[in-house]
Design a protein around this nucleic acid. Structure first.
Lengths: 193, 193
DNA sequence: ACTACATGAGACAATCATGTCTCGCTTTCA
DNA sequence: TGAAAGCGAGACATGATTGTCTCATGTAGT
């Protein structure tokens, strides 16, 4: 059994139950518990490796995007296509104490969030996003929508091939320039004044 | 110590660490471990009660909205104001086996999702949301955005009083009628054809 | 003052997951 | 054929957590 196979099994099992025991992961991988321990001496090592692997996959996927040949908006579209399928990994593991306090993971994750922030800024600069919306909120919302898209696919509410496009459309409209002439939101917005 | 105080402490502790021990919860509540067990005979009972209480709070908050005096869009705005502060509860507990298999919880949660679906349909009917976007996706995204808003407040990225409004604006724009004359999204959408 | 009751502290057994270790078995490579 | 290495199964000790129980203390109501 390869290291990758073990990490995959761990990803599947832990995504469904973050508190799952090593035995459960080993079983899912079709492997003895001892073998799992041979590859990852402690549970913490396994989780660290799983998170780092996921972060690495995201890096790998995003770095293949020809950033200089596309608009920031198009880059975001490509990123979503790449990472929506990976969206399940973090939400469940982000509370693991082993993950929270790990400097290597924090550094990698923080860097990715920073890159996303920069992309959002670039989109504001090119006029595809509304400058009035706080970048931090846009980033948080993108994060959440990626997760929601994956989740919707997972329980069959949305077709896999549609997920990224739906998320993209939601983001672009949601954070694009507000349209004062639009009929719908008008009423509620003025009613609040 | 009141039952509510215990549930509050459990909410705080478990939100940060879903695997936290009963001792940790009791300590947070400033109460002996035995006392905690007197109110909730098992850990499972505690978690069930916590989730049901959260669902009940949401029900209570939403039922005070004068549905017949507001447009569907305004109802959503009110709902967001009510439940964004409660948004942390579920995401962390939704994976607990005790919660997944509990019929009472599933029924209550399912009913709330259904009500949200109906509201989304009503918004489509009144023209404030785009009929072309799948209702299931809108519901999933609202769910995710509520969580993201709470989260953003929690780590200081967004002011508490702005959170619901940001989520509302994001939803309304994100799922409102697409504006073909808009400048920004145009490029990407046509580029995909 | 007295009774009833809830609490905090802590002892306790039982359970469970972790991490280590050993022992055969199989595969691979020479 | 033979040696080396990896594997599955499982025994084992350890530590943490759960859930039960007891007892002494404090407090509210009469």
């Amino acid at each position: 059994m390869t290291r990758q196979g073990l990490l995959n099994a761990a990803g599947v099992v832990l995504a469904r139950n973050p508190g799952a025991a090593m035995a459960e992961i080993a079983e899912k991988a079709g492997v003895g518990r001892a073998t799992l321990y041979r590859h990852f001496p402690t549970r913490e090592d396994l989780i660290r490796a799983l998170v780092l692997e996921s972060l690495r996959q995201i890096d790998e996927a995003t770095q293949q995007i020809p950033v200089d040949r596309l608009s920031a908006e198009q880059v975001l579209a490509e990123i979503l296509v790449s990472i929506v399928p990976l969206g399940d990994r973090f939400r469940f593991l982000s509370n693991e104490p082993a993950v929270l306090n790990d400097p290597e993971i924090n550094a990698a994750y923080g860097r990715q969030l920073d890159e996303l922030s920069e992309l959002v800024e670039a989109m504001k600069a090119e006029g595809s996003l509304d400058r009035a919306v706080p970048t931090a909120w846009v980033v948080a919302a993108i994060d959440a929508l990626v997760y929601a898209a994956w989740n919707a696919v997972d329980d069959g509410a949305v077709a896999r091939r549609d997920a990224a496009a739906l998320a993209f459309r939601t983001i672009m409209q949601g954070f694009g320039l507000a349209d004062p002439a639009s009929t719908s939101s008008q009423k509620a917005r003025t009613a609040k004044k």
